[in-house]
């Protein structure tokens, strides 16, 4: 009986260990056309939450992206004429979308956010949050 119990535990631990070890490996090697990302996007789940990606810098600080949520009474003009808050620099490496947000207090783009693009068309953008894995969808505006 004791032997059976030890075996059962060992088997469970081995299974769990295998399961834990085997979960880590898969990688997404997809690539997307960055040109498709340039433009104004609106969150599907939060209407009024806009994101714009520029191909070239849009302000003197070198930002290439802006965000504004009209639900918070913020306009695109507020962002473009403001002090850099809600501006970012973005980069796309394969499917890896990195956004470095501008921190006014530091005067630098030093606040990173990492996403993995799942779908990018001329009208639709979907990416996954690398921390939580949650999906976010956007439509081109």
């Amino acid at each position: 009986m004791k032997t059976r119990r030890i075996f059962a535990v060992s088997a469970a631990v081995a299974t769990a260990a295998f399961a834990l070890i085997s979960c880590g490996g898969d990688k997404d090697e997809q690539t997307f056309d960055r040109a498709l990302l340039v433009g104004k996007w609106e969150s599907v789940s939060t209407p009024g939450d806009f994101y714009r990606y520029y191909d070239t810098p849009c302000d003197s600080r070198g930002a290439t992206g802006t965000e504004w949520y009209t639900g918070d009474s913020v306009t695109e003009t507020d962002v473009l004429t403001g002090n850099g808050n809600n501006t970012l620099k973005w980069s796309l490496d394969g499917a890896k979308l990195t956004k470095m947000y501008y921190q006014v207090s530091h005067g630098a783009f030093d606040l990173p956010k990492y996403y993995t693009i799942i779908e990018l068309t001329s009208t639709m953008l979907k990416y996954k949050d690398d921390v939580t894995g949650s999906l976010k969808s956007f439509v081109k505006r």
Partner: peptide, 18 residues
Amino acid sequence: DTNLDSMYNVKMSTLHGS
């Protein structure tokens, strides 16, 4: 960094920090 409304409430969509 954040934007605030007239009542000094944080506009969460603009909140950035470390």
